[in-house]
Nucleic acid binder design. Structure first.
Lengths: 263, 263
DNA sequence: CTAGTTCGATGTTAATTTAACGTCACTGAT
DNA sequence: ATCAGTGACGTTAAATTAACATCGAACTAG
């Protein structure tokens, strides 16, 4: 069959429709989805495979079911590749807040991972994190003492969370925490998931200096759970894509560094 | 089980025949194997599923192939030394102690890592570990709930230890712990390092069933710190390189499984 | 000891999923 | 414009699975 509609991206729209339908219904069969979308069962399978690969659905023989809590955020792999330039720029700026001998806490953000990659020259350091990729990055660094935060592994975040994690954090104190969030306005930071909020809050509470690393694509935007007021951070580092008015508002409340992306 | 022929254990003999045929030919189709064994294709599938679960075969759509050592492709530099055969044999035997739905604890041993590699077909499972390589192995397994034990990262062991780790363990209970040690006699297990002993002891204390995985090269031998008496384990799995007299002595104290390294 | 019951292994059937291949529109270069 | 290349989609046949049926052995109660 040929694509005859005026839709610019029929495949994407169809997958969106499938995701929404499944999220609403809880589950569906391949045949149902084929009838819904007007394509063959084969194509539904291909779409569903891709959605499942991105963690938006769960596929099982005989149909698909909704996957709780992953609908709003894109998957870990996608986040890793997106906006790398901005994140590197932010990390390069953040590393200026670190001095040899410091103890740091890094959350499960790709921005903090970029920061981690820059830490070796600043050793000796102590670094605490719950992000598996950051752990893998740091474990090869001689003279960086690495303390991993254990807990329940989340595939969508590739990090360890839950009670064991927050408890471990609360028995630790570090010089500086570097935190990133999924949404922010001039007054507040947010995150979509309850459990992640708990971990980030614990990290903030255990750090003498609290630094927020924000990719400009995430603001202004809100999410379900409040994380912390903007003025509770000691410093915010953003890339140079922030709206001017918003930046001015931010500067009324907190110290802001703008990291220039080179181009 | 139904015993029709003169064979004492038709199912086992058939699986043995399948394993040998595939090992010899390199690969085979389900229909071929059905003709070879004289049972239905369905039964071949079930047999092959079980063999694949034990890591003896690899199953793919359209047939099965011999296992080409998939576990260790990526880390030629790490533990390149021998004994992989023994460890794999022990792991293949250990996996029989695991059933879908179980919760497991794995220590920071390469033998337990081999076991971890075989776990995916047994999902759903909950697995707790402090070994970075095991974490990396398990985090890709859908339907395996992974709980990482955090703590101070040890570069010599590539694992997380110390107080945060032992505390986290003591607030957990699992069905089965799989432990390995660096030295053992017929009466006692040992380990060279105090800190590691603490973690392994905590793991044993938190497990309903305690399984010891022992490479025969480590016995009889002692080390500085006592870990636990042999009879405090519920089961010991060794490879077939153990001295006969020692094996007999062991059997006086604990259930011993001997894993055959090759057929 | 025997009849009934349970249980595990296997076969049967139908539905689902996959791989392989064919078709059609679109793209871009000659 | 023509034609090969590419990607999306459909078609078909084979492979695989789930679900159910069957059969015999082991087990139990009387």
């Amino acid at each position: 069959m040929s694509t005859r509609r005026g839709d610019a991206r029929p495949q994407e729209a169809r997958q969106q429709a499938i995701a929404e339908f499944v999220a609403k219904q809880g589950s569906a069969t391949a045949v149902e989805l084929a009838e819904l979308t007007g394509v063959s069962v084969m194509t539904v399978h291909r779409d569903v495979d891709e959605l499942a690969r991105r963690g938006l659905l769960r596929k099982f023989r005989g149909g698909v079911s909704a996957q709780p809590s992953t609908v709003f955020e894109s998957d870990a792999e996608y986040r890793l590749n997106a906006r790398v330039e901005q994140k590197r720029a932010i990390a390069a700026r953040a590393v200026e807040c670190v001095e040899p001998g410091d103890s740091l806490m890094l959350d499960d953000s790709t921005t903090a991972l970029q920061l981690a990659a820059l830490l070796e020259p600043l050793a000796p350091l102590t670094v605490v994190t719950n992000y598996r990729r950051t752990i893998d990055e740091l474990c090869t660094m001689k003279d960086v003492r690495l303390i991993a935060l254990g807990g329940d592994y989340s595939r969508t975040h590739d990090s360890f969370n839950g009670l064991p994690c927050t408890e471990a954090i609360s028995s630790i104190s570090v010089d500086t925490a570097f935190i990133s969030t999924s949404a922010m306005t001039a007054a507040m930071t947010y995150h979509q998931e309850q459990e992640i909020v708990a971990v980030k809050r614990a990290m903030l509470a255990s750090a003498a200096t609290k630094v927020l690393l924000m990719d400009s694509s995430k603001m202004p935007r809100t999410a379900l759970h409040h994380l912390a007021a903007v003025d509770s951070y000691d410093r915010v580092i953003v890339d140079d894509g922030v709206d001017t008015a918003l930046l001015a508002e931010l500067r009324d409340r907190v110290v802001v560094d703008v990291a220039a992306t080179k181009n």
